[in-house]
């Protein structure tokens, strides 16, 4: 079982990277990745939210939604849990690590609308993972996201000194760069674990 778990985590990080293969988590990926330091911070926050929400949401789904035949309420329930978690983190940071809070600015509440977080928990349900698998998947998906965002921040720092055509400056160039990284990660696709 440990092997299976490790394979699952590895594939979430590299083979089916959340940002570069599944396209989940693109908005902050393109928005926050300008400075590596901010990227690391964002990555940590997202990892925390994704891991904890995977746990909580698994419990809510298995012990409340399914037994009471309320599966159709999953979208609402999940997004509310995520929103509450993010709110909690915001208050926590504001009180204990205000520097980080200011650094994040608007991106912290934006984790609520991060496709990666909701996407991860929805995938957990879809694949029918149990508790340990759900939490591991959420955690590794977040690690994959963090990896992508840090890599990207490094690249964007260099891109600042490039001289692209006017129309390409900023996001369009970032998208093309992301495409090239995605190509690199495609190299991992050949590895498959059944």
């Amino acid at each position: 079982m440990i092997t299976e778990l490790l394979l699952l985590m590895l594939s979430a990080v590299l083979i089916e990277n959340f940002v570069l293969s599944r396209f989940l988590g693109c908005c902050p990926f393109l928005g926050v990745s300008e400075k590596p330091a901010a990227a690391v911070g964002m990555g940590c926050a997202v990892t925390f939210v994704m891991t904890v929400s995977s746990a909580i949401i698994y419990l809510i789904y298995t012990y409340i939604l399914v037994p009471f035949d309320l599966i159709y309420l999953k979208t609402i329930a999940f997004i509310l849990v995520i929103a509450a978690l993010v709110q909690f983190i915001e208050l926590f940071l504001k009180k204990f690590i205000p520097v980080l809070y200011n650094e994040f600015g608007i991106f912290l509440p934006l984790i609520t609308t991060n496709c990666a977080v909701l996407g991860a928990v929805l995938l957990n349900i879809e694949k029918g993972y149990d508790f340990i698998y759900s939490v591991s998947f959420g955690f590794s998906a977040a690690i994959g996201f963090t990896l992508a965002i840090i890599l990207f921040a490094g690249i964007r720092e260099r891109l600042e000194f490039a001289d692209p055509p006017k129309a390409f400056r900023g996001i369009p160039l970032a998208l093309v760069a992301a495409g090239l990284i995605a190509m690199a990660f495609t190299g991992f696709h050949g590895i498959s674990f059944s």
Binding site: S21, A167, P172, A174, L175, V176, A178, G179, A182
Partner: peptide, 19 residues
């Protein structure tokens, strides 16, 4: 059709739109 193509197509389109 692959992810990389998606990023690059969108990037070029956004640039075009900006222009």
């Amino acid at each position: 059709i692959m992810p990389s193509g998606a990023f690059i197509t969108l990037g070029c389109l956004v640039a075009l739109m900006k222009k």
